[in-house]
Every structure is written in structure tokens, then in C-alpha cells.
Design a protein around this nucleic acid. Sequence first.
RNA 1: CGGGGUGUAGCGCAGCCUGGUAGCGCACCUGCAUGGGGUGCAGGUGGUCGCAGGUUCAAAUCCUGCCUCCCCGACCA
Length: 573
Amino acid sequence: MRLSQFPITTTKETPADAEIVSHQLMLRAGLIRRLSSGLFSWMPLGLRVLQRVEAIVREEMTRAGAVELLMPSIQPAELWEESGRWTKMGPQMLKMRDRHDRDFCYGPTHEEVICHHVRQDVKSYKQLPVNYFQIQTKFRDEIRPRFGVMRSREFLMKDAYSFHMDAASLEETYQAMRAAYTRIFERIGVDFRIVQADSGDIGGSRSEEFHVLAASGEDALAVARDGQYAANVEAAATLPAPGPRPTPTAAMQQVETPHCKTIEQVSNHLGIAAQQCLKTLLVMGCNDKPLALVVRGDHAINDVKAANHPLVRDPVTLVDESAARACAGAGFGSLGPVGLDMPVIVDHAAAALSDFACGANADGMHLINVNWGRDLPEPQVADLRTILDGDPSPTGEGPVQIVRGIEVGHIFQLGRKYTEAMNVTVLDADGREAHPEMGCYGIGVTRVVAACIEQCADDKGIVWPESIAPFSVVVAPINAKKSERAAQAARELYEALLSEGINAVLDDRNLRPGVMFADLELIGIPHRIVVGDRTLDRGALEYKARDAAEAVDIPNTLDAVLAALRGDLPDQA
RNA sequence: CGGGGUGUAGCGCAGCCUGGUAGCGCACCUGCAUGGGGUGCAGGUGGUCGCAGGUUCAAAUCCUGCCUCCCCGACCA
């Protein structure tokens, strides 16, 4: 490729609305252009990168035994009504109607469609297991798209769906996908971590996420400092406090706490640490009646854990203040578990307290020196809170630290949830109908590009890893306009690299050197060979790796260039 | 969806308060000079000032409505 023939538009200035490095650089380097909120065009340079990621994903999926197909992005409503997700997915799904008034959606995912095809085509256990994948555009109408292609509404996803006669077969494919994903992210060259995850809206039993570690990541991960344990904080279990509860020391007492609406205010007013206070939230139960969730004052309720509790309605729905007053006798800020006429679910840590403070269920009043089993019944205990930095890891591997990550992959064991809902059956060896086990496996292909830039950039621009760079090496003549000798030498080297099968590009734009260098660094090409009269005079070329501090002279031979591309550089005097 | 901001040339912004010829930087085009780190000088192209309505002799500017985009929040009592 010659850059004079390849439209790239770079900018010196950073667009005002780009917040994170990858978004800024993708715009500045001209990889993407925004069309509308959460909608981006991939410009030629960006597309080359995207296609390289795709190629790696495709190769590794195929190597791991998955077979590619392509399903429509527009899907009929009937399939989603069968699975129950036409309404459950909510406004995240973009719905539309055709000229015959039939309902469709732009597919946010493809479990329904693949189940439909499998129930048509797969009749016998002999055809299983099977693992289909596609690389295809999805649309999810995100509440708030942000960070460029990191959280866009339309995005490219690799999704795979496997079907099995039994759990052992599913586990085998799940592990094969886990290994394939590991290879994919290792090949791309990003620093990533596999974490345990909640299954979220997709559902199912077991799942793990692949996160690219980056400070700008939207997800918080709990990682054992000295061990293997790692989990999304949404799913990270907390341990019950060790040992028995301390013995109560004083009688329960009601005290005035006027105008105290938050734990902080109550804690300051009473001179009692937040960890000795209880925080009480009223939420809707599955039976449409309110129930109370209680955590320690310094802890936060974890929505995902709460929603997973059998008594709590999913999604977690807070009762409003007037309803709280009607059923508990007090407004927000003065609620507590004592004397409440509703189920009370208490987090481990809150259940381990003695002599604690909590709302008195009377406005402006709290109770102090409250004790479980004495002043109110022994609580029903659950894990409700979000894990904090320094908490023990649930596997006993020491304290966790909280790091941030960008979710680029997610693998699930779905069990029979969809095959039952969609009535997918095959005949087993005994001739009986059975619902297959199912797994699904996703990679956010467009997001991988952005996540990679978050890790691979410096103050000059993008520093592509070789694996997904749009071009591997650029041949850059100095003053090609004036020096036909430099221009000629550059052309010849470029042609020679091409015939070696190298993804080379010639910068024949006739730019001034400063502009050219700044541009090439911004777009992040891993290797640069500068050809100029000055170096030619001494029989040399100048080589610089994008991530190296200094350029070095190499002999003016193809072999020396090829060696340099392999990282084999001559010793410098 | 709630709150805050924003909208003026492809990008970044000023002008608006106090109504009166639409500006600056970057980018782009032309010429000359320059030629190893975003070069200099000169000239130039490009804008129904988000949309609609209103006030006024006159609206980018004041008023009303709508829209866009961005940020924060979206149950933590």
C-alpha cells in the first residue's frame, strides 16, 4: 500500500467530547468517525485493524473446532416471544415493524435464532456436539453510549453457540473455548485476566469474563493479591465474619436523630462508627410485597447478588418513600429491622454485629445497642454486599484488591434454559427426546481494538502490537520531492518487502519529515525505515521500532531490514 | 429517564451579557521560500451561527418551543 493512495485523516487536536485515550486516539488517527450517538464508521485504516482482530478470532475459533455461519441481524419477534425475552430484554432491544405490521428486532444476541436452526436441523445425538460461531453486527440500545466504540450501540461481535447431550460434553467445549480465548488475547498481545462472573440477562449456570486490564475500564474486578482467585465484583462472594458474635453489653435504647438521612449523618450524630450501624433498604419481593435488605453501614448492597436471592424480585426494585412509610412507619433514613412486619434478609457482616445502631422505624429516631436474638429475631442471612478492597478472598487466598477491567469476552454454560424454552430436542441413544445442554461464547471484536489502544499508547499516539497493526512496517523517504535517489531507494525497499510477504506501506505523500514522523507515530505502525540521502551516503538505513526510544542505523540491505523487523539489530558503536 | 452543560467552517474555539458588515487557530487550496521532528511569508476556498416561531427598522446575540450531542446520576435510607 502507498499512503498517497490510502486516505487517512489525522488531526493534531483532540476532539472535545472524547474522554478516554483510546477514543481520542481512534478519532485523531482517523480509525473511526462518529455518525450518531453510539454509531461509528470504521474508516479504512481502522478497518484494517478490525479485520486483523477478526482474522485472529476466526482462526482460533476454527482451530478450537467451532464452525462459522452467518445469521441475519434482523430477527422476527416470534422467536423472542418463545424465549420470553421479547418483553424481558426491555428497551435495550431495538424493535421495528415491517410493511405487513410484523414485529422484528435488530438482534442484540442470537440464542433464539441459533436454537431455531438447531431444532430444525439437528435430530440425533449423533450430530452433537456442535459449536457454531459468527462474526456479526449487533445492536443494543444502550442507555448511555460512551467512550467511542468501547460502549457503542452498534458493534461487531463474535458469538458462538454450542449444543451437547450432557454436561460433560458442554464442559469440554467450554474449556476449549476458554483456551481459544486465552490464545486469542495472548496472540493479540493484551494484558488480560479471566474472572468469575454473574450470568446477567443471558442466564445460565456458570460463566467467566475476559477482561483487558485498564484504569479506564468500566468494570471493577476483585483479584486475590497472592492467588488465583479473580471475580467481577458483581459476582465476588464475601465471607461470613469468623468466630462468634460478641456478647451484648448494654440494653437497647431509642435515641433522637433529627434530620439524619444518611449513615454518615447518623454515625456522626451518635458518635458510632458506620461499621456499627445498619443500613436498611426496602425492595419488592417476588410476591409483590416489600421486604427489607440489611447491610452494614459502611457496605454497599450488591444489586446482582440481591436480585439472585430467591425472595427478591429481579431486577431489584426499590419501594418509594411513601410506600416505605406506609409499611414500615418511617421514611428513608430511619428504617431498621426491629419490629418490621416483612421478611428481613441480612448480609453476613451485618448479622455478625452486636450492640449496633439502626433506624427505629419512626422518623428522626434510631435505636442503639441493638442485638440479634435479643431485641429482634435471629436474622435470615445471605451474601448481599459488594466486596471491598482488602476483604478476604472467598477461596482463602488472602485479601483481594480491586482493579479495573474492560470486558472483551464472556463465556457461559447455559444448561437447558434456552433449549427448553425454544423446544430444541434431539433423540438420544435410547430413542428418547432430550433437550441439549447449551453454551455460548462472545467476544466484542470492536471493543478489543479500543481496549488494546488503552494499553498500547504513549504521548505520541498508538503503539500497535505487531499482531493487529494496520501495517507492520512503513518505508519513509526523506525529502522525496527533492531527492529522487531517496525516493527511488524507498520504492525499491518497499517493493522488496512486499515480495517477502511483509505488510509494508510506503509513505510517498511527500510530507515534510516532522509532519510525516508525527503522523506515522500517531497511527502507530510498529516499524519505521527512514531512507534519506544522509544515511544512504554512509551505506545505511535508519530503523526505529515504534516503542523504542531511539532510531538506529542498519546496513542498507534487505537482509538487514528483515533482521531488524525480527528485532535483530546490529550493535551500535 | 432525572440533573447540568453544549450547539457558530472538517476539527478546536471566541463573539452573545450591552442587537447593527460573522471572526481566530488548525486543516484545506495557490504561489514563493524552506527541507531530518507538526517550517515561514503572502494570498485564498469554505458558515441559511442546531431547527421552528416570536420581539425589533435590524437577531449568532433578546423571548418561547423543539432537537442534538456531551458530562454526571439513575435505588445505598
